[in-house]
Design a protein around this nucleic acid. Sequence first.
DNA 1: GGTAATTGTGGACTGAGTCAACTAAGGGAG
DNA 2: CTCCCTTAGTTGACTCAGTCCACAATTACC
Lengths: 148, 148
Amino acid sequence: MDKKIICDIREFNRFYTKVLGLFNNQILGTSYSLTEVRILFEISERTECIANHLVQELSIDKSYMSRIIRKLEREQLIEKKSSTTDSRKNFLLLTKKGKAILDNIHIQSDIQINQLFNGLNDEEINEIVSSMMKIKQKLSKTGGAPVQ
Amino acid sequence: MDKKIICDIREFNRFYTKVLGLFNNQILGTSYSLTEVRILFEISERTECIANHLVQELSIDKSYMSRIIRKLEREQLIEKKSSTTDSRKNFLLLTKKGKAILDNIHIQSDIQINQLFNGLNDEEINEIVSSMMKIKQKLSKTGGAPVQ
DNA sequence: GGTAATTGTGGACTGAGTCAACTAAGGGAG
DNA sequence: CTCCCTTAGTTGACTCAGTCCACAATTACC
């Protein structure tokens, strides 16, 4: 691969590190860590979600996961329902409160996204989003990055 | 902004968080933290670089910066040269060793980038890179993200 | 000269994430 | 059935990145 291309990619990575940093900082205002929010989100998206799936999917240490699950349970954002067919597994579910908090975080995040795109017209926004989709679609194929 | 668009952006953010996570993990193998490497890189790119610029540019706590600078100095990756016109300021410079180590990190990073793009043909790679440049160029204008 | 701003240090701390050892349950192979 | 290996999760002890705050030294401003 060409030096110029590698350089451009690295430049984009530095740039987007900062963009994502903004979002992470916003989450810092919520008394939940980025990892905790990712976990809440994954639980909200999955049916029959168990901790070990998240350990693999999000590359989180299982002991750390265990403690986060306990914290979220204590704060009543999630509930465990142990599997009837395999008592090692606990299905994780968002509570009403958990859903509300995740929704709220998303609303905050929406505001931030709007800020980031502020001043761009619809055509420009569409160009950016389709660029994003193209990057994701192409890079997902390579296996260099986890699938999603 | 449209719900679908916001959703797509968030999806891309999650995806690219993972991509960047791969690079960060690679750096973990070098006994330097991501922040330390960013500092080394910024020093290498600037002339008359002082710690306080980096504090602002990279959004790092100044006491933390002070300690990192000290560490990098102790390990002889950088040198301080105090300004003749303002004795509060110290210009930061990479040593030969510092340059060598940064180069090496970049070589490792090149390998990782190649892995990430493995299996894509030149046309696809160009599409991705120009998508990245488009995103950076458009989003840089909005001020939602720091300029570079 | 006095006051405010800039640049940098040091101490004390929080909290995210890691490592290793362990329990408990399930899944075969013989 | 039982021995053994794998999977799911827990606990304790720890590291280290990053933050907060008070402070020293120098410079800029009026």
